[in-house]
Amino acid sequence: MKTIKVMLNVNNEKVTLQVKPYETLLETLRERLSLTGAKESCSLGSCGACTVLVNGTPMRSCLILTPEVEGASITTIEGLKNGEKLHPLQQAFMEKGAVQCGFCTSGMILTAKALLDRNKKPEKRDIVKTMSSNICRCTGYKKIIEAVEETSKK
């Protein structure tokens, strides 16, 4: 099978890969790089569980073909920790009870991170608007919003 050479910067590490021309970024991350924090839940761009940051922007990795993002910097949930220390958002999600089954969590946290990177003190309105791109079946969202609000206050 024909493969394409792609260079990526994933969580601050340069990687060079041979990928299938139609391989999604989600597949590359999960299957080739064993970064399974990004989840596949719909493969249709409709749930946000697969969200990763591509050059700082939250994107649905199930919709992106890896060759399309040649050269890009990718941040996955695994790249958020600072050494042993969880990122403040990860910490807040945990403490506020924003995590139940956890399948939506990495997508939620990365979506929130991009928001806070762009806007340190978002209004609740902005948080709701941004986070509405991702779905969660367990928590009722209330504590997810609280976790993002709490982090933005720090």
Binding site: L35, T36, G37, A38, K39, T76, I77, E78, L80, K81, L86, Q90, Q91, F93, M94, E95, G97, V99, Q100, G102, F103, T105, S106, I109
Partner: peptide, 16 residues
């Protein structure tokens, strides 16, 4: 008390 497995899930390392 936060859920015991929340750190694993928030860190993206819980194995589904």
């Amino acid at each position: 008390i936060p859920k015991l497995d929340a750190p694993l899930k928030a860190a993206g390392v819980a194995q589904y």
